[in-house]
Simulated scan of single mutants.
Amino acid sequence: MTARLTAALAATLLMAAPTQAQNVEGFRPLFEDRLHQQGDGFSLCVNTLSMTADFERALAQAIGDILLTDVKIIDIEPAAPPRPLDTALPYTAEQIYILMAEQCDGFFGFTVAAGYPDWLTISYPYLVGNQILVTRDQAYNKLEDVPRDRPIGSRFGTDGDASLITYLQSLPESARWKRFGYGENKLLLDRLNDGTVAAAVIWEPTLQFATSGDPKAAGYKQLEAPFKITSTQVGIGIRTIDSYLKEELGDAIKALIADGTMDTLLKEHHLAGDSSTPQTELSR
C-alpha cells in the first residue's frame, strides 16, 4: 500500500456499500493484529492536500511535546486531484481501512459525527468551526435585509447547507430565498464574489484560510442568521481497538485548547482570526 491513499473527512464517504464492507472484512486480521514498533510513540497521518495540513503537522508536534512522546508525522498524498479550500477527499472505506492498518495510528481530518464503521472512532475535536452566513454587500446586516429574489449559496452536504435547507423549507414558498448549492468551497466564494449569490453559508475556517485570516479586510461581512447553524467539529480518526490512544490524544487536545496553544496555532495557519470565537468556548 502506498502513501497515496487518504481518508475522507465526511462520514458519508466512510459508509461502505455492502460489497465494500465484505472486502473490508478480509483485511480485518491485518487491521487488528498490526503491531506497533515505535516504542512509546505513535504515527499521525496528514492529508497533504488539505487546507489544514500545515496546521495539523504543527498540532501533531505539539501533541508529542505535551505527551512527552515521539510522534511520527506521515504525509499522505491523495491520488485524486485537489479541491482548493477543502479538506475532504472521496476514498472508499476499504482504502481507509488498509491505510490505517498499515501506516496510521491516527489520521487527522474526520468530522465528529455518528455513522462511522465499527472499526473507527474519532478523538475529542481539535478544531471546532462555526458555519457562518456572509455577504459582500456592506448594506446588509441580517438575512432579512437580503432581497427575496437574490439567491443564497451553500456548499453541498455540509452542516451549514443542512441548516439553511431546513430553515428555507420552514418558510412559506412565496417568502423563500432561492438556494444555490456548490460542490467546492472556492466555487462558492467565487459566486459570492461575482454577485451570483447575495450571501453564502460557509465554514468559518475556510473563509479565514481564503483571506489569510482577515475576512473583513477582504470585503466579507458576517450577517445575523434567523436560524441556528450547527458548528462543524473535526477530530482524529483512530482504530476502535486503540481506545488508549483515543484517551491520550483527547487529553492532549484538551490541554492544548485550555492553555491557548490551539487558538495560537489556528491563527498562525490562517484558520482563525482575531474575531473568531476561541476554541475554549467552541469546545464546551
Rank of each mutant, 00 (worst) to 15 (best):
E281Q: 13
S174Y: 13
E281G: 05
Q138G: 12
R191V: 02
F42C: 03
R150T: 14
T2M: 00
H270L: 15
H270S: 11
A21S: 07
A198G: 11
Q279G: 08
V134W: 02
M51G: 05
P29S: 13
S275N: 10
L256P: 00
D161R: 03
L164G: 01
L249M: 00
A3K: 09
L35P: 12
D190Y: 01
G153A: 07
V134A: 00
T6S: 13
E281T: 11
D190S: 01
G181K: 06
P78H: 03
L207D: 06
E184L: 06
I165D: 08
S212F: 11
A101L: 10
I257L: 03
A21V: 12
V201R: 00
K178A: 13
K267A: 08
V46E: 05
D161T: 01
F27W: 08
E224F: 05
G219L: 02
R136S: 06
F27M: 13
F209P: 08
L13R: 08
N130F: 02
C104T: 04
I253G: 03
E102L: 11
D75W: 13
Q38N: 12
P82K: 03
T230K: 14
G109K: 01
E268H: 10
N130C: 05
Y126K: 07
I122P: 07
I98L: 07
R150K: 12
I238K: 03
S243Y: 07
T232L: 06
R57D: 06
A80W: 09
L164H: 02
F156V: 11
F180L: 09
R136A: 04
G219M: 04
P90Y: 05
G195Q: 05
T135V: 12
T121L: 10
Y91S: 02
A11P: 06
A162V: 07
E281I: 10
T230Y: 08
A3E: 07
N47S: 13
I132S: 02
K254H: 00
M1P: 02
L256K: 00
D190G: 01
Y244M: 05
L68D: 06
T2L: 00
I98M: 07
L49V: 12
G153E: 01
G115M: 10
E224Y: 08
S243G: 05
G41C: 06
L9F: 14
T277H: 08
A80R: 04
P117S: 09
K221S: 10
Y140E: 01
S283L: 15
S43A: 13
D274M: 12
T12L: 04
L171D: 15
V46Y: 07
G181V: 12
E102K: 10
D54M: 11
E173K: 15
E184A: 07
D145I: 12
V112K: 04
P18E: 09
Q208T: 15
A17M: 14
D70F: 02
G129M: 11
A16I: 09
S283R: 04
N23D: 14
L133F: 03
A210I: 15
T206M: 13
L188N: 08
R191I: 05
T196V: 05
Q279T: 03
G195D: 10
R34T: 14
L133C: 00
G41D: 09
P117A: 10
P90G: 08
M51A: 08
D86Q: 11
L14Y: 08
L5S: 10
T240D: 11
L30C: 12
D159M: 02
S275K: 14
L271Q: 15
G181E: 09
T230C: 04
I165P: 03
I63S: 00
